Amino acid sequence: MPYRDEQLDELVQFFRGKVWLDYSGLRKVKAPDKFAELPVLEPAIQAEVNKLRDWMRNRRYADSTVKTYTEAMALFFRFMDNKDPETVTNDDLEEFNRDFIIRRKYSDRSLENVLKQALAKSGIKKPVTLHWLRHSYATHLLENGTDLRYIQELLGHKSSRTTEIYTHVSTRSLQQIKSPFDDL
């Protein structure tokens, strides 16, 4: 299966809501002019992809959705050199995202450009950065009751002190704390 420009959008849609990807560590790297060819999908893994395709068709998913998911799955396993599906980890997904999707598609400025284009299309005039978006996401998680340790893991922080920065922003949560004496 040759690489297509649309595959990035399809893969992002496939992994949306399933994996939190930490973009804070992005840095400029020299991308090779030509990437190595991916191996052909092994018959056993192709059979698993076919099972997914059949299952989705039986559940009456749209043909475009079936195509997107099955091609994304096949591309992932080709990138992982036909790794056994039972042994796939979140680290494998991060590696795929970092080493296949981002390095093949995004330069150091293109993520910011995508954000700026989205802001222009939506008519938002306030200045926004990817870092602010990340910070806002973490703050909303905290305000909605997500445990700080989970947020730390999602953001990829090694130290809880780094994640605790978000606690000073979330004063709404403090106001909603109910004293046990209020129930007396």
Rank of each mutant, 00 (worst) to 15 (best):
F77W: 12
P32Q: 07
E86F: 15
Y150P: 04
R149F: 11
S173K: 14
N144V: 02
P127N: 08
D108W: 06
K121G: 09
H157P: 01
F96N: 02
T89W: 11
F79Q: 02
V88E: 02
N144R: 12
S110I: 00
M56K: 05
S107M: 06
V66E: 00
R60S: 11
F100Y: 09
F79W: 00
V128E: 05
W55N: 14
L141M: 13
Y150I: 13
V128R: 07
K121E: 15
N58C: 09
I45K: 07
D92P: 08
H135F: 04
L93T: 06
S64E: 12
I165Y: 09
W55D: 12
F79K: 01
R109S: 15
T162C: 06
R57M: 05
A72C: 14
M73R: 08
W55T: 13
L52M: 07
F79N: 03
S110K: 03
K83H: 02
R149W: 10
F96V: 00
Y137E: 05
V114F: 10
T171R: 14
A138F: 01
D91M: 09
G123E: 03
L142S: 00
A47I: 05
A47H: 12
K121M: 15
L133G: 05
H135W: 06
K126E: 13
P43C: 01
E95F: 13
S173I: 08
Q117P: 08
V114H: 06
T87H: 05
K116T: 09
A31C: 15
H131D: 14
T162Q: 07
R57V: 10
L148G: 08
S122W: 13
E94V: 15
N113I: 11
R78K: 12
A62G: 06
S110W: 01
E143V: 13
F77K: 07
I102C: 09
T65A: 11
H140V: 08
A138V: 01
V114Q: 09
T129E: 01
V40Q: 08
K51F: 08
H168G: 04
S159H: 07
Q152I: 00
P39H: 03
E86T: 13
D91R: 15
K30R: 15
R109L: 10
V169G: 00
P127V: 05
G145R: 00
